[in-house]
Amino acid sequence: QDRFTGIGRDATPAEVKAWDIDVRPDFQGLPPGSGSVQRGQQVWEDKCASCHGVFGESNSVFNPLVGGTSKADVESGRVASLKRTDYPGRTTLMKVAYVSTLWDYIRRAMPWNAPKSLPVDDVYAVTAYLLNLGDVLPADFVMSDRNIAEVQKRMPNRNGVTTRHAMWPGNEFGGPGKPDVTGSTCMKDCATEPRVTSLLPPHAGDAHGNLAEQNRLVGPQRGRPPEGKVVA
């Protein structure tokens, strides 16, 4: 575009290399390297366990990363516990469908307080270790750019995802399509049963502090003072 001559310049190869760090499910962008489960354990215990727990089970700074998957899931590629409504919480390994997602994210964002500090080989290693914790990879596994496609075939939830929905604003994934849920346009004597089935217990309201102090001091309505401080 001659129109904007002098605005912007070509990036140098070193610049693109420095920033183009993303890794896709087809492994475009994956740098060569490798790391063992064993080395991964070292990295994990040095740099990750303090937040995520020794077994990736902690929920003190974030949801547990590991748990809820089974050997059967590794076979089927569907995490069975996701179908249960009584299963408490969802771990990362239950949800993640692509190993590339884990690899890419750990490389760009972890450790949380020192993102992008891991050498490439350590990203392989710690990803392998996480998958080992989830019984996806054996303890003697050495993950690398050459065998990562095999690892993908063992991801417990690799078949548990879909893009069939109407919420992608493009023509991919089968196009925008028809929304799955339909509201009603009834205006008079509609068939709703206005029965209250869910309501906060008073103490839960107070969990959010004094609502009187979360509303403007004037206006047709004010914030509710805490239970017990109500003035008649």
């Binding site: 995802v161 879909t162 893009t163 069939r164 929905h165 992608w168 994934f173």
Partner: peptide
């Protein structure tokens, strides 16, 4: 039990 991905709108 399936997850819808890329739900953006």
């Amino acid at each position: 039990g399936t997850h819808r991905q890329y739900t953006s709108i």
